[in-house]
Design a protein around this nucleic acid. Sequence first.
DNA 1: GTCCGGCCGA
DNA 2: TCGGCTGGAC
Length: 233
Amino acid sequence: MASRKRSPDSCGESSLPAELRSIYRLLLQAYGRQHWWPGTSPFEVVVGAILTQRVAWSNVERAIARLKDAQLMDPASLAKAPLDQVASLIRPAVYYNAKAEKLKAFLNVLSERHGGDLAHLFRLSLPSLRSELLSVRGIGEETADAIILYAAGKPSFVVDAYTRRILSRLGLIDEKARYEEIRALFMENLRPDVPLYNEYHALLVRHGKERCRPRPACEGCPLRARCAFPDAP
DNA sequence: GTCCGGCCGA
DNA sequence: TCGGCTGGAC
């Protein structure tokens, strides 16, 4: 398929920063605020970020509720709990054995390098925090950025499959663009603003779930006027 | 049957 | 780049 990527310097086109802000406004207008992250404590956000990998959030909610019921929603308690107990509690979150290992891997780093204190970890600078998180087996780029933004409250833009699909259909990136390229598109064209990054990612998820699906519902789409996709089926 | 707020190792 | 992980909602 031919690339839909627009020429960055084509005439009459608004600048990228203006384009990204405009998309944000349209999404916010269409869907309203999303109130992310739906977790209470920073630790719960970390747990949710790992559990939600490739899984519907409704499943994650069940898993989190089970951890809370078992009084394990804090680093010290969860670190002490046997692996198979954790796995069985988070079963609704799918890939439960793998994810129990991931939680343990994170807790090991937290314990060994930060005295088990999340606030100590989050005191690192954004780049240091990011590489620290990426050093944990089971935490990749998206999960790391979600933790940085929604748990640590630092401005790292979160990119996911929805973001990639929506931006490629809009013609702003190639559909095979790498994670870092997409993240840079936002971070080099928007001010490092935590509430903005928070809401923007949440809105993209909402839009991708509800409308810009694999088979998109373009009729009445709030972004249709600036999208390169509607001329296809 | 499809679709989920990915990541790792081969 | 591709298969494995592997439950629940619609």
